[in-house]
């Protein structure tokens, strides 16, 4: 996939890690009359634009995810590539 132009990285808290933001959003939903949404987990995503000629890109994306975009102690990440 050396010709990939964009990658989307999703970062979320690992299963079991308290997500105060998600909990608060869920409580708000219940208050607003949407009790069927019984759990909300929040996260963030990044859109990376990658130079055409970049090599070894899968490994490089993985590297920046575990070094910077996510904190592997408490977060998981998922990469989606788009061409």
């Amino acid at each position: 996939m050396a010709d990939s132009r964009k990658a989307i990285v999703y970062v979320r808290l690992k299963e079991g890690v308290l997500d105060p933001q998600g909990l608060t959003i869920q409580k708000a939903l219940v208050q607003m009359g949407y009790p069927e949404f019984v759990s909300v987990r929040s996260g963030r995503f990044f859109e990376l634009e990658i130079a055409d000629r970049a090599a070894n890109i899968d490994a490089r994306i993985h590297e920046v995810c575990s070094k910077l975009l996510a904190n592997p102690v408490i977060e998981d990440f998922k990469v989606e590539k788009m061409s």
Binding site: L13, V17, L18, P20, Q21, T24, N71, V73, I74
Partner: peptide, 11 residues
């Protein structure tokens, strides 16, 4: 140091 510091539980 081990572990992580996340958002205060009460936000």
């Amino acid at each position: 140091l081990p572990g992580a510091l996340i958002r205060n539980a009460h936000l």
